[in-house]
Amino acid sequence: MPDQLLFAMEVTLNGLMAGVLYSLVALGFVLIFKSSGIFNYAQGVFALFAALTLVGIQNGQVPFAHLINSIFGTNIHNFGWHVPSVIAIILTIGVMVLLAFLVERYILRHLVNQPEIILFMATIGLAYFLEGFGDIMWGSDLKKLDVGLPQGISETVETVTDGWFGYGFFIDKLDIVATVIAALLVAGLTLFSQYTKQGRALRAVADDHQAALSVGISLRFIWVLVWSIAGFVALVAGMMWGAKSGVQFSLSLIALKALPVLMLGGFTSIPGAIVGGLIIGVGEKLFEFSIGPMIGGATENWFAYVLALLFLVFRPQGLFGEKIIERV
């Protein structure tokens, strides 16, 4: 088999894996938009805050230590214990649920019936607030995320493909784990929305707010629920991306990778987020591989947004989004 074809196959596989990571970020946006019509600008910061909290809890870091020390003249930074990863993850989920409750209580509740642009603006404010709050709570220093996620080349894939093609493909073990987790996440969300009372309520609210309210579904409960789930998804995304780069404030920029996925897959579809991520991942990687070297490289962000723009022109609701029909 020609080398270029083998390389293209390797790039495609890695593009699919990268696409899954993009989808993980996009899922959080979709969940909130679908249930409340809010484009949550703060989703990237949610991932950052979740990852900061996870590492902080795991390492026994004292929250607000700098502030406490400044006020009381103390010098405390650490509780001196190390929390096992599983417990730290569970506690972080608890913090994200609390955050969802506070968002509903102090922001969303006051903005019911406001235009969507106002809600969007509120999430911009929330993003900046949360970024600063995370800084005060956990500090700005870089933190190494260690929850036992494997990293590095998969020797199995390398050996098998070497046997088949005479060239061992590179696949990152972390990407394989991310793919499995994303699959479990989507399956879990699907089962939750299909087979639980809360899930059905969530779907009802997503379909029609007024009708859902008229049959006694609590919009506030649904909002807390969906923001909690989005917080959990943000934690998963923060863990995957944080494992690559360490937990630092640039983690919030992962939201940039989700936007073209949303434009392509649609803002209201969970399968759309997955398929959109895969298309963007494979498309940008293959474009960079084949055309990039001719035009100076670094084409991935550009290509992702151009591809999304093309989809917008021909299918504004995205691949799987709901077509908006407004009758006069």
Binding site: L21, L256, E284, K285, A298, N301
Partner: peptide, 21 residues
């Protein structure tokens, strides 16, 4: 050989696959 990385650089799979090749 020059290999450009898009800002901010959180995703560099293409670039390092090129290095590997």
């Amino acid at each position: 050989t020059t290999i450009a990385v898009d800002h901010p650089g959180q995703e560099q799979k293409s670039q390092w696959l090129q290095v590997r090749r």
